[in-house]
């Protein structure tokens, strides 16, 4: 019988080959044996983490990262209701694309989080700072994930932070996207609480910013 590490390798390889059928077969075999969500999460998040690290090293593509996340999200969506397992008791998280309309990065992060069992509210694309503030307060969001593609949109995070301050609303902002990868200190200069270089970095940042509240 295969050990967990071998299974992780097989699942990761199936994801990297965008082989939905093989990935589903490995996943379903494993979930039939496992009665708890934690090992399932380890399989999914473990594989996606490794894929994220490989993207950082330049050995896998953004397309593979995205497709892997989508496949895992589909599998988790199918598994959770059947297994009667609830999503995590996590901080209230939302994600939004500030000004821009290219949503791939946002979708990757959303898929990763949902694949790990988190509830994530998707506020949408092409949003102004005003609209994001409004939605955040209305939904009592605790951690706000902001994705951008263009540099000028990344600079708008400063305006977003200023509007939250004026409203007296405290929210942790995690930013991600190409401008923050190309300019490493940018997240801090625009007033975010953290910057995520890769999609899977978001797990560590949630742990750090969410005071570990229900996040493992």
């Amino acid at each position: 019988m295969k050990g967990f590490e071998d299974l992780l390798d097989d699942f990761e390889n199936a994801l990297l080959k965008i082989d939905r059928i093989n990935a589903a077969s490995i996943f379903r075999g494993f979930t039939q044996e496992s009665k708890e969500f934690h090992p399932v999460e380890q399989l999914v998040v473990g594989s996606l983490d490794r894929i994220g690290e490989k993207w950082e090293l330049g050995t896998v593509s953004l397309a593979q990262v995205y497709m892997s996340g989508r496949i895992c999200e589909e599998l988790i969506d199918e598994y959770l209701p059947k297994a009667k397992v609830n999503r995590k008791d996590s901080p209230r998280i939302a994600i939004a694309l500030l000004i821009d309309r290219h949503a791939l990065g946002k979708k990757i992060v959303t898929s990763l989080l949902r694949a790990a069992g988190y509830e994530v509210a998707d506020f949408g694309d092409g949003l102004t700072p005003e609209r994001i503030v409004e939605k955040t307060i209305e939904s009592r969001i605790e951690i706000l994930l902001i994705s951008t593609l263009m540099y000028v949109s990344a600079l708008k995070v400063e305006e977003l932070r200023g509007q939250f301050d004026r409203e007296g609303y405290r929210v942790k902002i995690i930013v991600g996207g190409a401008p923050f990868r190309l300019d490493e200190g940018l997240w801090e200069r625009v007033g975010a609480d953290a910057g995520s270089r890769t999609a899977s970095d978001v797990f560590d940042l949630l742990e750090y910013l969410g005071d570990g509240k229900g996040v493992s």
């Binding site: 309309r101 290219h102 092409g126 263009m150 000028v152 949109s153």
Partner: peptide, 13 residues
């Protein structure tokens, strides 16, 4: 195309 201040326009829908 959607024009923004001080940056390149974004492609629309």
């Amino acid at each position: 195309s959607f024009f923004v201040e001080n940056g390149p326009p974004n492609a629309g829908v």
